[in-house]
């Protein structure tokens, strides 16, 4: 199988995730779009592992998953804490650091 379709798919998913980060206001949905971007890069890793013929790409994808899990844990805890005090999970609320 040629790897180009996989890479194209990975690129598309990544761009969609990036667009989502810019467009959505709900913090949790933004977080989910970030997860989508991470997944897209995982796909690219695995594809290139197949291309090069060694498992280093899969190892890298594995580590990405682990780190993403840790990141989600902490990130969601933060979002929840903020939600408790502010009663809103919009990313546009933190806008005091401006001119």
């Amino acid at each position: 199988m040629s790897i180009t379709p996989f890479l194209v798919l990975s690129g598309l998913l990544f761009s969609i995730g990036a667009m989502g980060v810019l467009v959505r206001r709900n913090a949790i949905v933004v977080f989910m779009c970030v997860e989508l971007m991470l997944n897209a890069s995982n796909l690219a890793f695995v594809t290139f592992a197949r291309q090069h013929g060694n498992l280093d790409g899969q190892i890298a994808a594995f580590f990405v998953m682990v780190v993403a899990a840790a990141e989600v844990v902490v990130g969601l805890a933060i979002i929840m804490t903020i939600f408790r005090t502010r009663r809103s999970a919009s990313v546009d609320d933190a806008s005091l650091l401006k001119y």
Binding site: R50, G53, N54
Partner: peptide, 11 residues
């Protein structure tokens, strides 16, 4: 890209 190496050897 060249032909994919494939993971038969690695696996």
């Amino acid at each position: 890209y060249g032909a994919a190496f494939g993971l038969e050897a690695a696996n």
